[in-house]
């Protein structure tokens, strides 16, 4: 379960950003974890409850969005959604496609509290 390593990296980034903004606590962390990112949202949530302890994000809520997988065909230009293990063109059915969405593993935003 590599979600814990990923979470520890996340917490270090969050701590750095919180310090840069002189935040006293982090209320919310928003992530995009695409279906092809290799990260299981449930495992990440679980790891997060361990990794956040004793940090500025100890009470933070974790918001995860997965989004869908989108592909664009190099042969016919067709575009649309695809399943994780069938990355095929929705129009011509061929596999020579580029994945345009679904691989993201991103920290999108943080809600911070600062004392006045």
């Amino acid at each position: 379960m590599h979600e814990l390593s990923v979470c520890q990296g996340l917490i270090r980034q969050v701590e750095r950003i919180a310090a840069e903004n002189a935040a006293t606590s982090v209320d919310r962390i928003v992530l995009k974890v695409g279906p092809l990112s290799g990260i299981e949202p449930e495992l990440l949530r679980h790891a997060f409850t361990i990794a956040r302890e004793g940090t500025v994000a100890a009470l933070a809520e974790l918001e995860l969005s997965q989004g869908s997988i989108k592909v664009r065909c190099r042969l016919c230009g067709g575009a649309g959604e695809a399943a994780v293990n069938r990355l095929l063109c929705p129009d011509c059915g061929e596999w020579q496609v580029d994945v345009t969405e679904g691989e993201e593993l991103l920290l999108l935003s943080l809600d911070l509290e600062t004392s006045l």
Partner: peptide
């Protein structure tokens, strides 16, 4: 009385950026 200010910071970084 413990005054707090709340703000949202947009980040958009890769979670594996250190690695």
């Amino acid at each position: 009385a413990h005054l707090v200010d709340k703000k949202t910071v947009d980040v958009l970084t890769n979670l594996l950026q250190e690695n």
